[in-house]
Amino acid sequence: MEQYRQSIRQILTSHTTFESSNSEIESQLVFDTEHDHYQLLEVGWQGLKAIQFS
């Protein structure tokens, strides 16, 4: 199980290294290892509009 957890964290972390064309969008990682929940968020601004992707 730990190998799967580590693989998921590595994959999500590698996705945060890709540069967005919009410098106002930030990648955020959320790791809840106690409940095995992992999430990559893209948050920021696109013009005057707040955005969030997960």
Results as ranks from 00 to 15, higher is better:
Glu24Met: 06
Ser27Glu: 08
Ser23Tyr: 10
Gly47Met: 03
Glu34Trp: 03
Gln39Ala: 12
Asp36Ser: 04
Thr17Leu: 12
Tyr38Asp: 04
Ala50Tyr: 12
Val30Leu: 08
Glu26Thr: 07
Leu29Glu: 03
Gly44Thr: 02
Gln28Cys: 06
His15Ser: 11
Thr13Asn: 12
Glu2Ser: 12
Arg9Glu: 15
His35Val: 02
Ile8Ala: 15
Asp32Val: 01
Ser27Leu: 03
Val30Asn: 08
Leu29Trp: 04
Thr16Arg: 07
Ile8His: 14
Gln28Val: 10
Leu40Phe: 01
Ser27Lys: 05
Ser20His: 06
Gly44Gln: 03
Gly44Trp: 02
Trp45Val: 00
His35Ser: 05
Ser27Asn: 04
Ile51Trp: 03
Gln46Arg: 13
Glu34Ala: 07
Trp45Gly: 01
Thr17Ala: 13
Lys49Tyr: 15
Ser21His: 03
Glu19Gln: 04
Ser27His: 06
His35Thr: 04
Leu29Ala: 03
Glu34Tyr: 01
Leu41Trp: 08
Ser54Asp: 11
Glu42Leu: 13
Val43Leu: 02
Gln6Ser: 13
Gln52Asp: 09
Ser20Leu: 15
Thr17Tyr: 14
Gln10Lys: 11
Thr16Val: 08
Ile51Ala: 01
Thr17Ser: 14
Ala50Ser: 06
His37Glu: 07
Ser21Lys: 04
Leu48His: 05
Ala50Gln: 10
Val43Ser: 00
Gly47Glu: 00
Thr17Ile: 13
Phe18Cys: 09
